[in-house]
Design a protein around this nucleic acid. Sequence first.
DNA 1: AAGTGGTCTAGACCACGGC
DNA 2: CCGTGGTCTAGACCACTTC
Lengths: 240, 240
Amino acid sequence: MRQVRPNGLPAYKRIQGAILKRLESGQLKPGDAVDSERELAKIHRVSLMTARHALAGLEREGMVVRRRGAGTFIAPPKIHFNKLMSYTEQMAGRSLAVSSKLLSLGVIDTEQEIAARLALPATSPLIKVERLRLGANEPFAIETCYLSAGDFAGLTQSPLDRISLFSILEHDYGLEIAHADEEIDATTADPHTARLLGIAHDAPVLRIRQVIYSTKGKTALYVLGLYRSDRHTLLIRRFR
Amino acid sequence: MRQVRPNGLPAYKRIQGAILKRLESGQLKPGDAVDSERELAKIHRVSLMTARHALAGLEREGMVVRRRGAGTFIAPPKIHFNKLMSYTEQMAGRSLAVSSKLLSLGVIDTEQEIAARLALPATSPLIKVERLRLGANEPFAIETCYLSAGDFAGLTQSPLDRISLFSILEHDYGLEIAHADEEIDATTADPHTARLLGIAHDAPVLRIRQVIYSTKGKTALYVLGLYRSDRHTLLIRRFR
DNA sequence: AAGTGGTCTAGACCACGGC
DNA sequence: CCGTGGTCTAGACCACTTC
């Protein structure tokens, strides 16, 4: 028999989409049973293997749980551990009154070490964005981002004081972020940092250096973050 | 046709095992091509779908990379990000001369906060193990573990100064570790800590609080770690 | 006993990669 | 062009859970 693809999508993805849609619409809640393989096969007029493939994919993504002899069920709501989120996204999830203040924005070409971390030639021009992060009107972090000035030309004209840097990169520059490698340690606040964060000179701060990679495997961003450790802890889940 | 399972193993697992064996024996190296689906199907006398299933499983585990039109290849050696490892395991992977010194070992029942983190009644007796970690004969961390004295009776008699705590828990108590939730921040060394680590009073240290869960979902261990930040950085990979 | 997921067959066509 | 992985069919038997 010929394969027919009305939407241009493989059948198993159509089936996954149909289930996800029912989940998003609230028609399906965690714990609810999903149609069985055989039911899905009938409904979508595919073979059992194809229906299986659809459910197996959803299980791999953690959307459903399959129990032999019992059925397939919507998985409990995901806890997003170790997810890379922009500051704006993180705060949106906590309903905290937050804001961000642009400290500086410019192009530099003297930061050899940072160019190296971005896998760029030593004297490449870099855009440097320095921002103060505030929660409940109290500063709690300084984040300094470095990007290739060549790859993100025009970024210095963007309204970074109003719009999330991540969303500008994603929407205006088509950047797709894949993952970040982070190096975490503790240090003491230098006078400049201490003044901006409103903490004592030599107070401990959490330092996070991120190298952010695009889905194409390219280094896209280097971010240095300094966090008041009295207001900020990092939560991580690690697996055996 | 009847399914025949000489080893009691599903065919796709037998195929995976055969490939992994060739990998471990050094016969296959990263970048090498693996037998194609069709070859595997012939060799193991299974259908194409079954051979596919075997390769798909290996790909999901990150052992191989599949490239349409090209073939299936052994994946580059894994970098273990965000893996939960005992101190002993970590150091073994770096070939560093390391050791560990038992500072104290005893049973306490007054740590309400820690009992709470382990999801135990407030006055439960807890085993407390305090150890100094050294690398190249220089101290770099203090780790304090707390366990339920009831669940791990007899542990205080174990040779913790010689044998890894993790391996004792796994082998003698049948503990299977699943994951850990960690809370990371920066703080300053108190006098006791500073003296043991050989750093200045008020020097910044990285503080990691771990709650370790068993595969049965039980909280098994609470670990407080204080790390010299001049000798130790934490590496994390986070995903979008 | 009925229904579920887990494994498997023996084919098929398609889209893509490298030669 | 040929070989590769990607998708798919229309069945089948097994092991397990639920009732």
